[in-house]
């Protein structure tokens, strides 16, 4: 596995392990992408989903699987995943842009309207992104979920924004 030699997932590697939503599902709007590929004892995502779209079952080392049709892209699972391994991707945000919603636990938390550098899984800056939503309610327990708008072609690659120091 390339992952354990580099620390990041290639899209091909991810899609070989996790069943990702198909293009039809992406066409319908926001949906969760679960980038969890190792059998570790962990299952909070299953209970976090209000519509029962995530299944882990027994034993809890099972990989989570997403039921794409059930998933509403609400993002409840994003802040609950201890591994910060779930994002919500909306490939039909506009004609030319997509959004990615991701957990972001660094100070300063971005604000809506701000422009930030959008980065991929390797920490490379791919493009500029515009922050369109920031959710940080008490129920998220200090894991803010940030939504960034980016050009459509980067929707499968952008996973975070650059931390400001």
């Amino acid at each position: 596995m390339a992952l354990i030699n580099t620390g990041y997932l290639e899209y091909e590697e991810l899609s070989a392990i996790q069943k990702l939503p198909d293009q039809d599902r992406f066409a319908k709007g926001p949906v969760a992408i679960i980038e969890c590929v190792q059998e570790i004892p962990c299952n909070p995502c299953e209970a976090a989903c209000p519509v029962g779209a995530i299944h882990v079952g027994e034993p809890i080392t099972n990989l989570p699987t997403l039921h794409g049709e059930k998933c509403t892209g609400c993002g409840m699972c994003v802040s609950r995943c201890p591994g910060l391994a779930i994002v919500i991707v909306n490939k039909v945000y506009s004609d030319t842009t997509a959004t990615v919603s991701f957990p972001f636990e660094y100070f300063p938390i971005p604000v809506v309207g701000e422009e930030r550098n959008a980065m991929n899984r390797k920490g490379e800056i791919l493009c500029k992104g515009k922050i369109v939503k920031v959710m940080n309610p008490a129920a998220f327990d200090h894991t803010p979920v940030v939504t960034v708008e980016i050009p459509k072609e980067f929707a499968d690659e952008v996973r975070t924004i650059e931390r400001i120091r």
Partner: peptide, 11 residues
């Protein structure tokens, strides 16, 4: 030099 952690998302 100040090394205090002043701002933190969690703490």
């Amino acid at each position: 030099m100040c090394l205090r952690v002043e701002n933190h998302v969690i703490l």
